[in-house]
Design a protein around this nucleic acid. Sequence first.
RNA 1: GGCCCCGUCGUCUAGCGGCCCAGGACGCCGCCCUCUCAAGGCGGUAGCGCCGGUUCAAAUCCGGUCGGGGCUACCA
Length: 541
Amino acid sequence: MIDQLFPADLPSPEHWEQRYPPRELPQGALVTRLGPSPTGYMHIGTIYMAMIDLDVAHRSDGRYLVRIEDTDQAREVQGALEQFDRAFSYFSLEPDEREGHGGYGPYHQSERSAIYMSYARELLRQSKAYLCFATSAELAEMRKLQQQAKVPPGYYGRWATWRDATPAQVEAKLAEGTPYVVRFRSPGIPGRRVEFDEAIRGRLSAEDNYNDVVILKSSQLPDRLPTYHFAHAVDDHLMRVNLVIRGEEWLPSVPMHLQLFEALGFEPPRYAHTALLMKQIPGGKRKLSKRKDPEASVDFYLQAGYPAKAVLYYLRGLANGSLAEMPLDAALEAPIKLSELGGAGPLIDQVKLEDISADHIATLSTQQILAALRIWARRYDPELADVLDAQHDLALAALAVERVGVPNPRKDLRKWSDFRSAYGFFFSELFTPVTLGDERLGTLPDDLVRAFAADFAEGYQDLSDKDEWFAQIRDLAAKHGFAPTAKQFKQAPQEYAGSITHASQVIRVALTGSRQSPDLFSVARVLGKDEVLRRVSSLTR
RNA sequence: GGCCCCGUCGUCUAGCGGCCCAGGACGCCGCCCUCUCAAGGCGGUAGCGCCGGUUCAAAUCCGGUCGGGGCUACCA
């Protein structure tokens, strides 16, 4: 009866064992895997995991593979796979093995149906699994009753109605064409404890699993897909993964997974369960949610343009606190130690990331910044990309302001999307001249602003000495009734039109369109005399 | 509810019985520098959840308690 449920030519487990032999790797080599599910855009936690998987595998001369866990076809999202590739590539976390690369594929679970069915049939033959015809309505009703009776929910004991069904009952349902799932016949006994080692938390114990979990989902088609639990056991065994690093949410199912490995005759892998990345919310914290929190998505970081190294450095520091104390380059080279991973979920701190990112960008040359910026802009801000392409030299000159030849480079770029607001004014294509009455000019009377600007424009010289250049503002400020220092203005505000600060601010706003900018003299030099005059003159009309 | 994990400044953490009336980083506050901003320099703020126990000695070990998080699906 069991054999009739499966294709006659379905291979036996031995076939797969031979097809996917143990790997020939050095002693102690670790094989790790990441199993992203294309049910939405990639979570930043997935990059965190990928980073750890890759580091641990490569440090041990092992292998790191990516397996697409697409067994939930209903929730699959278009374009997710493309986004995965983009993310791995951005962070240089390409796996050693993935679809099309590696001898243990296919690496999409949806294409491994025959493999799962072989092993499920084997379990059925050995009575370690059975057919279950319970409908979702029946299961919901069961849960309700269990809740009322205050007993643990699940398919077990007297609730497991199909566990000991007679062949006749099963045959009758089959004859009716009733949909069914395959359940694992758990050998667990309620109350019994199990112990196991966990690479991050040490020796752990828990109540054994006694729930008959579904291992093969129902289907109209002959090809059935497994649940996560069954796929985990089968795939990680056949792909010869020996260290399963996964999120903490899986910790409670370890006893069940161990039962599955045992029943299948597989040697279980080592497990490491990483703490979940959290987000601060008004009442406390919760796990970063892909659906609710924009910063949970990898796309958020790509779009904003955080340099990959900055993000990786931040993530590495979260994994091993000691790495956060090292300089970026050293930290990216240093090994991640599983034993040093924290057991508590860290809150992701956007401000800290920005600080790290600004520090990192400050170490780059103007050429490096421009190169990265152009790649980012090409995808996320095409208009800016066009301007940068057309004005390559201007862009370099703009970036060089207070960055080249100074002891402390500017840190006004935390991410590539900051460029527009911080440096956009250097480009006439991106700049709109400021006219009289603009609120950015502050409270100075229009007449004064106009007269001051006119005077400035008339005598303006493109001097190469900073002090001499500033003297132009200084002298004119005095002439128009501004106090020579902020201090003096403060002492007798009624005697002055404003201070030198206010006078400079007029020129600053005219040149940059902002009340905050890099050093004015440098800006003016990059802009050139004609452009300075054009912008300042705009205030005289 | 049951089961599991976790618990040091606001945040990330160092600490693994005396070196700690707890160190660093980010944030925040103040001062300096200053034509604004971003920096930079100097200083400051703030924490071992609580209660017992072990010990000459506990942030560190044990128990309890409280709190946070996770799981409890034919989702992963």
